[in-house]
Amino acid sequence: MSRLSQQVVTLKIDGRDVGARSNETILEVAHENDINIPSLCSVEGLSVVGSCRLCLVEVRGTSELVSACSTYVREGMDIVTHSERLSHYRQTILSLFFSERNHLCAVCVSNNHCELQGQAQALGLSHVEVAYRYPQLPVDASHERFVIDHNRCILCTRCVRVCDEIERAHTWDVAGRGVQALVITDLNEPWGSSETCTSCGKCVQVCPTGALFEKGKAVAEMSRRRRFLPYLAKTKEKSS
């Protein structure tokens, strides 16, 4: 398939001519060229899910929007990453994220380190138009080192993927569906009693919000280390 043969292609992103390999995604090529496309679910080194929809971009000549993280570049593509329409969509999507659960930044361990908050600032989201749903969700602090607060979870599934793809423990998964969906450990048991969790902490490091955090952190103290990921992903590729 063409994807494996890695041809060199040229394309336009926001009017700029850029070169790329055909097995790269629009998001990767944009980042190489210092063009910022917002995104919450994608993490370098993990599989692509295309679920946050923030990285949608316009491709001139087609009417549909495509997610930059999951679309491979093609010769001659003409991509628009920022437009009034896109920014309106992105703001509304962020509003939907904020309305879904309880994101009270002022009392959150991740305040000022949160990617959701960061995107809201970057995209100039001033207020949330839709009604807050405020579900009452549990906080599980049974693990000796970590806590999961479902009220801050945006279901990006980074934790599920890192645990399965890198740590190979597959402690996490998503249960239920639709707005009822929740991330769970094992058979929806307390995290602390999980038989599969190795307490490696990778899930905590990749979490974009204050949903997963280390015990003992106070408000605004939870920053993340995640440079290790691409490296681990590479070693995994080599060994398999």
């Binding site: 999507i93 279901l155 569906r177 639709g178 969906a181």
Partner: peptide
């Protein structure tokens, strides 16, 4: 299915 936010939260809204 709850995977993507516009549908998951959007339909509920």
């Amino acid at each position: 299915c709850g995977k993507c936010v516009p549908c998951r939260v959007g339909t509920a809204q």
